[in-house]
Design a protein around this nucleic acid. Structure first.
Length: 282
DNA sequence: CAGATTGTTCTCAT
DNA sequence: TATGAGAACAATCT
């Protein structure tokens, strides 16, 4: 589940739950989620330290302490929540961090595909993020277009390749390509300038509401709202949606006419904006 | 029971 | 060197 918007939500959880508070207790209930660090060393490194900053790069969440940094990755099913330390933990709560007097961060994950790491210092953080591309939420248009121009692979593969661009997952990539009216199997480096520009614009237009919702919202006007339908149709043009496999992931796309669909989407957003502005000013 | 899953990483082939 | 396919990882659901 967790893609950039979800992790951005977890960053807010981390921020509001722990920022400025001291880590009083580290309770590793399942060491299976720890990577490269023992439960003991994690505890000894973190207990007594204060959480100073919550940062995110791509799908990585970082809890800075001024000394070591806790790095969290949520795989497909992970999440972070803030609870009362007195509330009973659930079976999939793998690590509990009691912060301050009455807050507790809980790393919960049904599976254990990813997990927690400890970076001893800032060099370690750099090492951890070394292979990550620019963050999808903050990358500027020029750099984004450079990413496209420098990859010959299919544009969908490039969008979900964390070393090319960090943060997008399977749902977001399909959603953004659909909005931009581009086929996922197009080689990234053959996209013309207007297409590259459109892709960047639609990435931003998709990310903004997704981050606000802390997920890719399955709205009726979005591809994501229909991709799991038994007989999925395009919410813009009604064309029967195609499901294929690309880069090992289920890929949903609309084989219908393209420019028309893009305008329809633009019109929808513009109309919605006007409606809001109108109702607000009257 | 087979097959699927919104993530990453590795191996092998092209 | 770059890219793609497939498997592996863990746990659950259809």
């Amino acid at each position: 589940m967790p893609e950039l918007p979800d992790v951005e939500g977890f960053r807010n959880v981390l921020q509001s739950c722990a920022k400025g508070r001291t880590i009083r207790r580290v309770d590793v209930r399942d060491p299976g989620v720890l990577h490269g660090v023992s439960a003991r060393r994690l505890r000894d490194s973190l207990e007594g330290r204060r959480v100073t900053r919550a940062e995110r790069h791509g799908k990585w969440l970082l809890a800075r302490t001024g000394g070591p940094t806790l790095a969290l990755h949520f795989g497909m099913t992970g999440l972070l929540l803030c609870a009362d330390p007195d509330d009973a933990a659930e079976p999939h709560d793998r690590v509990l961090l009691t912060v301050g007097r009455d807050h507790q961060l809980r790393y919960r994950d049904q599976r254990k595909l990813q997990g927690l790491r400890l970076a001893d210092d800032d060099f370690d953080v750099v090492r951890l993020l070394r292979d990550q591309g620019p963050d999808a939420l903050t990358v500027d248009r020029e750099e984004f277009e450079d990413v496209l121009a420098s990859h010959r692979g299919r544009v969908k593969s490039v969008l979900i390749d964390q070393s090319a661009l960090a943060g997008l997952g399977n749902l977001l990539a399909d959603e953004i390509l659909w909005r931009a009216g581009l086929r996922p199997n197009t080689p990234a480096n053959v996209l013309a300038e207007p297409e590259r520009r459109r892709l960047y614009t639609e990435m931003r237009r998709t990310l903004r509401p997704a981050v606000a919702a802390c997920r890719v919202p399955p709205r009726p006007t979005w591809l994501t709202g229909h991709r799991d339908d038994p007989d999925p149709h395009c919410p813009r043009c009604g064309t029967h949606l195609r499901r294929t496999r690309m880069a090992g992931r289920t890929t949903v796309w609309c084989p219908g006419a393209r420019r028309r669909g893009v305008r329809a989407a633009d019109d929808f957003e513009t109309t919605a904006r006007r409606a809001r502005a109108g109702s607000g000013s009257r």
